[in-house]
């Protein structure tokens, strides 16, 4: 089945078909197909399967869809390609395999991009996440002048050097799918098969939520509460990591890196909401980003002490 898809015999017809083809392509290449992380994040990179698992020596290969939220990008569902909630497809492989570029190009063929007709280019684009204290070198991948993916070799995460290095691929699913399906407005994109008994477009599913969240993000969210939530998440993250590794209830050594990291993600999203509400000044902005980065760094420090992070689980 995977083989016939790769040959691209037939172009995909819907948004979900593109996702399904990517899932089976990367599953066939040995990736664990994970599910989205159950928290609000700004990008697929925030999933602990990427941020934390990029650390330490242990080999890792995962692929997943991650619903992502960027409150400032809300346009009430009217902009043809800007959304406050969208999907990223994320692949992370550690150590980065020598044929990662070829594997990536194979995935484009799998979703119907025939590279004998299209112009595919790797254009320098170094990636840096100030909130995660992470950076890497790589490219944005262009297909006929359009950016369809981000391709990065992680060099540092949470202030730690990545050894070995992970290769990370991020596909902006809506934009990529619109291109493959030849759709001009995201809301008009078929979500399921157009000949399904009940055909649904992207707009059928998301136009209303884009309106609701745009109003919420820009004008309604209670800022005082959000400021408090930010402080709470920050304090909780630090508190969890300050607790001794030895758990008095079980006698086991349990470092709570992931629960602490959840608080870091939470703080990051709350910051994005506050930013969308326009209550964070330019100078404060840097300070908030610095506070989230400090949390991410603490979580990374903790994770490398855990078993999954390659630390001694004594």
């Amino acid at each position: 089945m995977a083989a016939s898809i790769e040959k691209g015999a037939k172009k995909p017809e819907s948004f979900q078909e593109i996702i399904l083809r990517l899932q089976s392509y990367w599953a066939a290449r040995g990736c664990a197909v994970l599910q989205p992380y159950d928290m609000e994040v700004g990008a697929g990179t925030f999933h602990p399967a990427t941020t934390l698992r990029a650390l330490g020596m242990r080999p890792w290969a995962a692929a997943y869809v991650q619903p992502s939220r960027r409150p400032t990008d809300g346009r009430y569902g009217e902009n043809p390609n800007r959304l406050q909630h969208y999907y990223q497809y994320q692949v992370i492989i550690k150590p980065s395999p020598p044929d990662l570029q070829a594997l990536y190009l194979g995935s484009l063929r799998a979703i119907g991009i025939d590279d004998s007709l299209h112009d595919i280019r790797f254009v320098e684009d170094d990636w840096e996440s100030p909130t995660l204290g992470a950076w890497g070198l790589g490219w944005e991948v262009w297909c006929d002048g359009m950016e369809v993916s981000q391709f990065t070799y992680f060099q540092q995460v949470g202030g730690h050097d990545c050894r070995p290095v992970s290769g990370e691929l991020t596909y902006g699913l809506e934009r990529l799918a619109m291109y493959v399906l030849g759709v001009d407005h995201v809301m008009e994109m078929p979500f399921n098969a157009p000949d399904a008994p009940i055909p649904l477009t992207y707009g059928d599913i998301f136009r209303q939520t884009e309106q609701e969240y745009s109003r919420h993000n820009f004008h309604a969210a209670t800022t005082e509460m959000l400021f408090d939530h930010f402080k709470d998440a920050e304090a909780e993250c630090r508190r969890l990591l300050d607790m001794p590794a030895d758990d008095p209830a079980t006698g086991m050594r349990i470092i709570m890196a992931h629960p602490a990291y959840d608080q870091c993600i939470k703080a990051s999203h709350i910051f994005n909401l506050l930013d969308a509400r326009g209550v964070i000044s330019v100078t404060e902005r840097q300070a908030y980003i610095g506070r989230v980065r400090a949390l991410a760094k603490l979580c990374a420090d903790a994770f490398v002490q855990t078993e999954a992070g390659g630390g001694q689980a004594a």
Binding site: P97, G136, L137, Y153, V165
Partner: peptide, 8 residues
Amino acid sequence: PKSMRWGT
């Protein structure tokens, strides 16, 4: 000006 490591 900027260089990187890869794989192992």
